[in-house]
């Protein structure tokens, strides 16, 4: 079970959280092309490596936040608030 460091509550066990899928996918305006809308709905990177993803502390504060997690190892590299840019990990990851 992962240990997730909620930016608002601190480290908590994974059972308190709900997964929210890949982060930083902007919802397009309603006038985009079919192709763009379909890409927004269905196309994801399926990253092998560090993935920016959303979590919600659903059995805690209820807040959504973002995390950088390495999908190969499950190790987290950063937790950050919704609306803030993806942290630059430099050459670290």
């Amino acid at each position: 079970m992962l240990l997730i460091d909620c930016p608002y509550c601190g480290p908590r066990a994974e059972i308190e959280f709900a997964y929210g899928g890949e982060a930083h996918i902007a919802r397009p305006a309603a006038d985009v092309s079919e192709v763009e809308w379909s890409a927004f709905l269905y196309l994801r990177d399926n990253t092998k490596g560090v993935l920016a993803e959303r979590w919600r502390h659903s059995h805690g504060c209820g807040r959504f936040f973002n995390a950088l997690r390495d999908t190969r190892t499950d190790q987290f590299h950063a937790f950050y608030e919704i609306g803030t840019p993806r942290p630059d990990m430099g050459g670290a990851v």
Binding site: G20, R56, R63
Partner: peptide, 11 residues
């Protein structure tokens, strides 16, 4: 409720 929170907090 989760979906409402999702759009409210993130979109």
């Amino acid at each position: 409720l989760n979906m409402m929170e999702d759009y409210l907090q993130t979109e």
